[in-house]
Design a protein around this nucleic acid. Sequence first.
DNA 1: TATTGTTATACTCTATAACTATA
DNA 2: TATAGTTATAGAGTATAACAATA
Lengths: 152, 152
Amino acid sequence: MTGDGTQRFGVLTEMSGFLLSLAQAHVYRLDEALDTLEGLTTAQLSVLTVIHENPGIRHGEVAEMLMIKLAYMTKLLKGFEASGWVERRSDPADRRAIHLSLTPAGQGVVERTLPVLLAHDAARPNGLTPREMGQMKRLLAKYLELPVTEQP
Amino acid sequence: MTGDGTQRFGVLTEMSGFLLSLAQAHVYRLDEALDTLEGLTTAQLSVLTVIHENPGIRHGEVAEMLMIKLAYMTKLLKGFEASGWVERRSDPADRRAIHLSLTPAGQGVVERTLPVLLAHDAARPNGLTPREMGQMKRLLAKYLELPVTEQP
DNA sequence: TATTGTTATACTCTATAACTATA
DNA sequence: TATAGTTATAGAGTATAACAATA
């Protein structure tokens, strides 16, 4: 690389969409080195975590929370079911709806891998101080209008 | 949707990687409604903008700045060349290297579409006050260790 | 030997639309 | 008629690796 470090992003650095996209690419690139998640992608682990946190949640609710297409959720869940991690049962009151929950095996996967990802996330290199990182996470959660987690 | 709004993200909201990923999905979803970019994706417009800001920049340098795979850059640039937007010329001093610049047509595209995306970005709905948005953008740029833009 | 860029393949995820079955 | 989920197809973008040309 012969770059002299003077490249300009121009007005791109004023655009939240661009910055978020690049930050996501940065995270994604570093997370690809993470080989300790038992073959799961971070997206897959997010789905399992949401089911873990909300046993009985509906198929479509998970998709909405994580902004995943319903069509792709079907594919993901099919894989999880084949792995024996997720159970689906239809709602007797509305037989279109499907409620999801983790099997003991699925809970085991989440309980083993989530702490690994959490530690990795906390240690991922970036240009912020710990205080600034806390600030950024709060702003991102507010940006997304996420429900406040009241964790003791 | 029968959700009662009590779904929990659990520890996911503590993870910068998850928050960035979800924020990016949020942006992406809303940007898909943007049909005024002359058929460009935001990623493609980013590439054109970087070439616009750095005439003569090398192929690989653009890829590194935008965290795009070199192999995919080749594909993108082939399309841009076919559209008559980008010119490639090889470096006489290092005949492996390829320097990029916009044609007048390419400059026209950037000058028409970039302001549209900029306005769209500024108006994109989110949970932050304008002051918080400024803060978030500053933190994201620092997170990414982007060169400071000294725009007058 | 290392670097720049090209080509090809497989994979993840998205967009879209047609479809079934319920409500 | 509208909603929950399924299936299939096309496309964007990534990872990977083999390759050619040049340094």
